[in-house]
Design a protein around this nucleic acid. Structure first.
Length: 110
DNA sequence: GGCTTGACTAATG
DNA sequence: TCATTAGCCAAGC
C-alpha cells in the first residue's frame, strides 16, 4: 500500500502530523494521539515529542492529558500559555480542567 | 546493547 | 477529588 502516510524517520513526526489534524476549538489527549498512531501505550512519547517541538505550525496546545488537565512544566510558562491559547479558541475550562465532553477531538481511523 | 528519562494512563485507597 | 503505585515503550546517552 503506497499510502501517502508520513513515513518520517522518527516517532515525533507522526505525532505532529496527527496533532495538526486537530482543528481550533477542539482538544485531544496524549493517549488519543498515541492510539491514532496505532500505539496507545506510547502516550508519554507524545508528550515527549511535543516537548521537542519547535514549530509554530503544530497546535501542541490542543493536546492535554486524559484528566482534561494541562501538564504544567514548571518554569517554562507554557502551561499558562496553553490555557490562554485554548481559551482563545473557545475551549471551556472548569476550574483547572477542560470540559472535554464537548471539545474532544475525534481522530479518523487510518 | 543496556540503563535512564518522561508534557501519560489506569487502578487503588 | 487527591495521592500513590505500577506499567508502558521510544529516544538519548
Amino acid at each position: 500500500m503506497s499510502e501517502p502516510r508520513v513515513v518520517s524517520p522518527g516517532f515525533h513526526a507522526r505525532v505532529y502530523a496527527r496533532v495538526r489534524e486537530v482543528e481550533p476549538g477542539y482538544v485531544t489527549t496524549y493517549g488519543d494521539v498515541a492510539a491514532a498512531l496505532g500505539t496507545p501505550r506510547v502516550a508519554r512519547h507524545v508528550g515527549w515529542a511535543l516537548s521537542a517541538l519547535d514549530d509554530d505550525s503544530t497546535p501542541w496546545h490542543r493536546v492535554i492529558n486524559s484528566q482534561g488537565r494541562i501538564s504544567y512544566r514548571g518554569d517554562t510558562g507554557r502551561g499558562e500559555l496553553q490555557r490562554a491559547l485554548l481559551e482563545a479558541e473557545g475551549i471551556v475550562f472548569r476550574g483547572d480542567r477542560v470540559d472535554m465532553r464537548s471539545c474532544r477531538w475525534r481522530f479518523e481511523p487510518g
